[in-house]
């Protein structure tokens, strides 16, 4: 807001900023005007200068005037607000659709050709529609530079749309409080020129160069894409869930149906912990914070993750 060079970041910036500036102008006028009048009266009619107050009980004409003028002004403000808002719900039919999934506490963007990313890549100058899905609790997808926000409600279909007008990286935040790491549920929007975007979009091998021969490299990629690291650290620190550092192969005390027992962290345990996270809770951690990844991760993926975990000594 206020910065002119960003006025074309999305097609809604102008409508939102105009309504903001119109209202800001009107309210500043009233704030300054009334405050100045008040201070003037206090100064002009202080006891030492104006020892005898004049008793005035009211004035109907004035009451009518200062009822009508604000009424007209608020209707003007309402009008600008509504006009800026209306296009946000009128999505063009040919919009490029991306399914945007929010969960505690990461974002995932699923493209129609099967590409999945944790950053939102969009083409410039083309209508983009985000189908919003919340998997667990309320989230809200907010792109300040685009002046756009929409709450995401589990079990309810919501959408937002925009035309990005300028290449660059923009912040994307979650703005509906969603628990422990709410403030880390952030990512960015990357707006690319249309030809560059098309190249990126068609190229499904783009992950290939990232995968070296290093063991566990593919696993790390899967881990990042699914936001596991929001809750599981790699450096031994305790976040929401147990750290993965040195985890694989060790003995853990877990609580199963309220009973404590010892087990070895092996492939079978990791697999079950990803598919049925609440079966065995490591002692000292809370139940119910992790959802099953049954729909997101295939067994091959989990094997890659296990390979990656083995590298974390």
């Amino acid at each position: 807001m206020f910065s002119n060079e960003m006025a074309d970041a999305s097609n809604f910036v102008k409508g939102v900023d105009t309504s903001f500036m119109v209202i800001f102008g009107i309210i500043s006028f009233f704030l300054i005007g009334i405050t100045a009048t008040m201070i003037y009266f206090v100064f002009r009619y202080r006891k030492s200068r104006h020892p005898q107050a004049v008793q005035i009980h009211g004035n109907n004409t004035l009451e009518i005037i200062w009822t009508l003028i604000p009424t007209v002004l608020v209707m003007v403000m309402f009008y600008y607000g509504w006009m800026g808002y209306k296009p946000m719900k009128e999505v063009p039919d040919d919009a490029f659709t991306i399914k945007s999934v929010g969960r505690m506490w990461n974002w995932q963007f699923q493209y129609e050709n099967g590409k999945i990313t944790d950053t939102l890549y969009v083409p410039k100058d083309r209508a983009v529609k985000l189908d919003l899905v919340a998997l667990d609790v309320l989230h809200s997808l907010y792109i300040p530079a685009f002046r756009l926000k929409q709450d995401m409600v589990p079990g309810k279909e919501q959408f937002m749309w925009f035309i990005a007008g300028r290449e660059g990286d923009y912040d994307l935040f979650c703005t509906e409080y969603c628990g422990l790491s709410h403030s880390s549920m952030t990512t960015s929007v990357v707006v690319m020129a249309e030809d560059k975007f098309d190249k990126w979009y068609i190229d499904t091998t783009v992950v290939a160069p990232l995968i070296s021969d290093k063991p566990g490299a593919l696993g790390l990629l899967i881990v990042k894409k699914n936001g596991c690291l929001a809750c599981h650290s790699l450096d031994g620190s305790k976040i929401v869930g147990p750290t993965w550092k040195g985890l694989f192969g060790t003995q853990e005390t877990v609580v199963t149906d309220g009973v404590e027992r010892q087990l070895t962290v092996d492939s079978a345990y990791v697999l079950n912990s990803i598919y049925n996270p609440n079966d065995d809770i490591v002692k000292g951690f809370k139940k119910g914070l992790m959802l099953s990844y049954k729909n997101e991760l295939k067994e091959e993926d989990i094997n890659e993750i296990i390979e990656f975990m083995k590298t974390l000594k």
Binding site: I23, I27, V74, Y80, G84, M88
Partner: peptide, 11 residues
């Protein structure tokens, strides 16, 4: 007033 206006509110 700013928050009551729909478009500014979205932001």
């Amino acid at each position: 007033m700013v928050l009551g206006a729909l478009s500014a509110n979205v932001h």
